[in-house]
């Protein structure tokens, strides 16, 4: 029995969809994650604690609540969702893009925390030194801060990816559980467990989940260690 026939086409579809949703959730949220982490790590401004709280909200709210709030704001009749649909023709609710939004949002706090720690580990005195050599602030960020915080960015991105792969509550609430559209890996496992005799089939997906999660963890460790080695030149 080959690995392809190990799962049904519908189940492979769920795996593929999950990878796609998590990939885009990570890629799109990464610049925002870096920006927010940088602001939290390097600046003090009014409302900093509020921003910090908002970023962490998905971590402490029940995921269903986050999903429902997403539906209220990004749904067809929602404040932002309505505008998006009318002006750009973009619909998020009950689409894979909506699943990506939900997954990205749920993974955001993990990403920001990892990146923020990495930025705080970059010696601001090196940034000062770059400034005295004539580098404007943006160049300092691009040539000093970013390369030095790269291991943390990689860790943050991979952790966010793994978190997005496992997203369930907010996704099912906001994007629903439509096979081939929004039914990601965890949703497919949940659906299989609802059907008599589905446990056996679910095991295959569970194995894949575990493999992807562990793989992401090892990859993140290996990549950030390799980058750290390259940075210090050891």
């Amino acid at each position: 029995m080959s690995i392809v026939s190990w799962l049904s086409p519908a189940e492979w579809q769920a795996v593929g969809l999950s990878l796609r949703v998590s990939f885009w959730a990570t890629v799109v949220s990464l610049p925002f994650g870096i920006a927010v982490a940088y602001a939290l790590a390097r600046f003090s401004f009014p409302g900093k604690q509020i921003l910090n709280g908002l970023v962490h909200l998905p971590l402490i709210l029940p995921p269903v609540v986050t999903g429902y709030l997403l539906l209220l704001t990004f749904g067809k009749r929602g404040l932002i969702g309505g505008v998006l649909e009318q002006t750009f023709g973009i619909v998020l609710a009950f689409r894979w893009t909506g699943a990506a939004l939900a997954a990205g949002l749920m993974a955001f706090p993990l990403m920001v925390r990892a990146i923020r720690l990495a930025i705080e580990a970059v010696d601001p005195r090196l940034e000062q030194a770059a400034g005295t050599l004539g580098a404007p602030r943006w160049s300092v960020f691009a040539t000093i801060t970013l390369p030095l915080m790269l291991p943390g960015v990689v860790t943050g991105a991979i952790m966010a990816f793994a978190r997005a792969m496992g997203e369930f509550g907010a996704t099912i609430t906001f994007a629903s559980n439509i096979p081939g559209q929004t039914q990601t890996l965890p949703l497919a496992i949940y659906a299989l467990l609802q059907v008599p005799g589905g446990e056996g089939r679910a095991l295959g997906l569970v194995a894949i989940s575990v493999a992807i999660a562990l793989g992401a963890l090892f990859l993140s460790e290996a990549v950030s260690r390799a980058i750290a080695r390259r940075i210090s030149g050891a």
């Binding site: 005195r125 400034g131 005295t132 004539g134 404007p136």
Partner: peptide, 19 residues
């Protein structure tokens, strides 16, 4: 701002860029 002052600054601890 510092980067427009055109001053070379040698710090006590060198502050070379490690990467």
């Amino acid at each position: 701002p510092t980067h427009k002052r055109r001053l070379g600054y040698v710090f006590q601890e060198g502050r070379l860029f490690p990467h």
